[in-house]
Simulated assay, not measured.
Amino acid sequence: MPVFALLLIAVVAELAVIIAVGQAVGALWTILLLIAVSMAGVALLRRQGTRTLTAFADALRNRRDPSPEMADGMLIGAAGALVLFPGFVSDIAALLLLFPPTRAVVRKRLLARAAARARVVRHDVVDGEVVADDPIVIDAPVIEPRRD
């Protein structure tokens, strides 16, 4: 499915949810809820981002595989993009990505899929040599080493 179609579906879903919430609680409460959920998302984004960056640095310092921390960083970045997108559906998806237990489930599936794709990739080696038609000549002064 093209990205444009997915974005269009997301916008329609966000509008439908905002309208439904607005009809249920009123326009002012809907706006306040949108602001509150976004503020909670930004606060959680900062906290989880700092924790993940610290864990990544610790993994590098201890010479262990940093791929879980890298995947967490990517998921936190996606959550940051979702927090910026106005609406309840995207904010809830962002909060789910920022909540460590649900992010761990997504990370596990993401890393398993990446490992499966890495096993499928073939590495073909072709023997050969490079032969230049015209050798490149650089006119540069020859510098003799100093002998003291």
Rank of each mutant, 00 (worst) to 15 (best):
V11A: 14
A104T: 08
V130G: 06
R46T: 01
A94F: 04
A104W: 08
L15H: 11
V17S: 08
V125L: 09
V105Q: 06
H123M: 14
V137A: 15
I18D: 07
F99K: 05
D134Q: 12
V37G: 01
T30F: 07
L33W: 13
T102L: 06
I76M: 03
M70S: 13
R61K: 15
V21G: 07
L60Q: 11
G73K: 00
D58W: 10
L28F: 15
D139N: 12
I19N: 15
L15V: 15
G22D: 09
I9R: 10
P145A: 10
G26T: 05
D139M: 10
G26W: 13
V25E: 11
R46S: 03
V25W: 15
A114W: 02
P101Y: 02
T52Y: 01
V142G: 09
G80Q: 02
T52D: 02
D139Y: 13
T30I: 02
V137K: 11
A16M: 13
I138L: 15
W29C: 07
A118R: 04
A93Q: 03
P145N: 04
D127W: 15
L97D: 01
N62I: 04
R117G: 11
A10I: 09
P68V: 01
S67A: 05
I35C: 11
I19C: 14
M1V: 14
L82H: 01
Q48R: 09
T54C: 06
N62C: 06
I138F: 13
P86V: 04
M39R: 12
T50H: 13
A5Y: 09
V37F: 05
E144R: 10
E69L: 03
A40I: 15
A93H: 02
R119T: 13
T52G: 10
V125H: 09
I9G: 12
R109Y: 08
E14K: 04
L32I: 14
Q23C: 07
A27S: 14
L111G: 05
P86W: 04
D134P: 01
G77S: 07
E69G: 12
A55F: 01
L33H: 05
D127L: 11
A16L: 11
A115V: 02
H123T: 14
T50W: 05
R64N: 06
M1C: 11
D65C: 04
V25L: 11
A116C: 07
M74W: 03
F88H: 07
M39L: 15
I31T: 12
A71G: 06
G22Y: 11
L110S: 01
R46D: 02
A24P: 03
V25T: 15
A36I: 08
V125F: 09
Q23S: 09
V125R: 05
E144L: 13
L84W: 05
S38I: 06
P66C: 03
A79R: 01
I19L: 15
I92D: 01
A140P: 04
E69S: 14
L53D: 13
M39D: 10
R107A: 05
A10T: 12
R46W: 06
R113G: 13
L7Q: 09
L84G: 01
R63T: 09
D139C: 12
G41C: 04
V25C: 05
R113F: 12
V25A: 14
D58L: 14
R51Y: 03
F4G: 13
A79Y: 00
V130D: 03
D72K: 00
P100K: 04
